[in-house]
Nucleic acid binder design. Structure first.
Lengths: 343, 343
DNA sequence: TCTCACATCCAAAGCGATTTGGGAAGATAG
DNA sequence: CTATCTTCCCAAATCGCTTTGGATGTGAGA
């Protein structure tokens, strides 16, 4: 059932039917109602491709997912973020389009997307410092919102980010206030901007108390469970073992806990752990009582907000780019306690 | 740069340029080459929406992701599966379209997708037994491939699935052969078809050895870490504690391990664990040496295959639906050992 | 020389919507 | 009663591509 068939059936022109359904004023309210009923009855839905060709708008938002051919890591937070964004898109009549792209030709992927006209805007994931994507997208005129900020970027742009620096400063301060002085940092890959901010939060908390963080207690890598286990084991076995950890993801924190318990130590008593928690739906931090003390911010909620900002931008291209800094909340769980006195 | 501009620039008609680029024979090879070069030079890419309106094909595949409004669980395996499928799509010039949909109106979502013409086919996730989606999709004529089989479905349909029954039979047999007689089953939600098959594999292995599985040692739920921890703890504390577990996901297995170690027991010695492993990229089962004994099958690979089957179906609508049963391999890790002798 | 096949190209009609620029009828004003 | 406005509708152009149905020119065969 297409527009022509529907209009024939109603004895109206396609023009009138189109206007009736799209809420234009130059159509009689009785007629509009008649059209509406018929559309519902015959389950008429405008053909999206035709509509977007006519309007010049795709009614779709793109997410370019870099697929590293080397490590094959699909970042688990994508799922929740896109689910959140997708809720917003759906509520506004937009589709979600994914582009899986080998990470070395991500840039040309954006050009292609623009030329093919399949989306009205894109979300940038995995922001790096001095990220070349910003210039590119401005050059080709594709609206975008970044999940994360890029230090080194001078022009204004739309973004949604968590206060990573603040979250890690707070987490670290919390441990320092409990008396811990040797704190291990299991950071994410520091090619990513968020990881740099987290590290600087970690360092700022130390600086504020004039404690020097130990370089040997810092690691930076993809945030797997094994990574948490391996690095925590290594640090705990070193000459100056940490009494606490700040960890960049709940998955890695599971590994840290394993390392701790493997050594016969008790988490929350012998060794404390604070982790960052993206509030992934399938990885809840305990049921009612949180297991880990954590700085938490829902990445799904970030997705919802990013989606809304982008859609607003598309509907209103001239406004200045909106930004939104989310604060992570500190959730105190059972994984932290005062620094055990020496000996 | 659109087709008309490019053809004007070349002094050719749009017809010829279109044909040249699409490999039709009725164009001189010299001309074709000239067109190709110009297209490349001016970075011409056909407008996807226009192209699909003209051809009647969307060059896109849809994935309908049910978003449970109650539990907000985004199944973590979606990410890897879609990444795999997306690789195939991209390689064949297809886009990936996601539809986030409240799970109670998933059915109408398919109708809408069909009417809007935004995809050429869909992948069905989370197959249940007697799943109504099969009839619906056949009725509206939207090609589909299912990730998982639906018992109760009589008509032929295309699917990709893991031999879940076989995998669990094998995992269970492995434990029985090690002398274990009380084995806990931590299954996924048994509203899902795959979970039913897994359970029947579990039971078949018992039946083959004339061992009766204990109802109190079976659980079925969303596969979170906490679930693994809670249920394993409960079972281990019960009157007749299991000496081994068969677990439906690596995430839950992490929880099981935690429960074991929490009780001062050693996994692989006091209590054995075999888990199903979807080979999620961010949740590797150890580095070089597998931590868990597992039946493993890459869900990403399943996605790749499903994508290919679907695209073949779209290109070749008349062929009988292809199916593909993947076997899970048994990987022996450190989490299993002979049943400790009583006392 | 004429015919026919073949190679090569193009004009125009589509795909299914939106949107521009009227046009007819009825209401209002003069 | 005529002129002007509204109100309500429609025909046709448009978006950017593909595809049908010729048109033209060339060389081979008779």
């Amino acid at each position: 059932m297409n527009l022509k068939q529907l209009s024939d059936m109603l004895g109206l022109s396609p023009t009138t039917v189109s206007r009736a359904l799209n809420g234009y004023p130059e159509v009689n309210e009785d007629t509009r109602e008649r059209v509406r009923l018929a559309a519902q009855r015959y389950d008429y839905k405008p053909h999206a491709r035709a509509q977007s060709l006519a309007t010049g708008r795709a009614f779709a938002i793109g997410h370019v997912i870099p697929i590293s051919t080397h490590q094959f890591v699909v970042n688990p937070i994508f799922g929740d973020f896109i689910a959140g964004a997708g809720e917003t898109y759906a509520a506004n009549g937009y589709e979600t389009v994914l582009s899986m792209v080998a990470d070395d030709d991500e840039l040309s992927a954006y050009r292609q997307i623009k030329a093919r006209g399949s989306v009205d805007g894109v979300v940038i994931h995995g922001v790096k410092s001095n990220d070349p994507r910003f210039d590119l997208l401005r050059e080709i005129g594709l609206p975008f919102v970044a999940h994360g900020r890029s230090s080194g970027e001078t022009e204004p742009y739309a973004w949604v980010d968590v206060n990573n620096q603040g979250a890690f400063e707070r987490a670290t301060s919390f441990l320092l206030d409990l008396g811990h002085r040797k704190i291990g940092l299991l950071n994410g890959p520091e090619s990513m901007d968020f990881a740099l901010r987290r590290r600087s939060g970690f360092e700022a908390a130390h600086a504020a108390r004039e404690v020097a963080p130990l370089a040997s207690l810092m690691a930076s890598q993809e945030m797997t469970e094994t990574y948490g286990y391996r690095e925590a084991s290594r640090m705990l076995a070193s000459d100056s073992p940490p009494t606490a950890f700040v960890v960049s993801s709940l998955i890695s924190a599971l590994g840290v806990r394993r390392a701790i318990e493997r050594l016969g130590l008790r988490m929350g008593q012998d060794v404390s752990v604070v982790t960052y928690d993206d509030a992934l739906s399938y990885l809840p931090n305990g049921d009612d009582v949180p297991v880990f003390t954590a700085t938490r911010s829902s990445v799904r909620e970030a997705g919802r907000i990013a989606g809304q900002i982008l859609i607003d931008m598309i509907n209103n291209p001239s406004t200045t780019p909106k930004t939104r800094l989310l604060e992570a909340e500190l959730v105190v769980g059972q994984s932290t306690g005062p620094c055990p006195t020496l000996g």
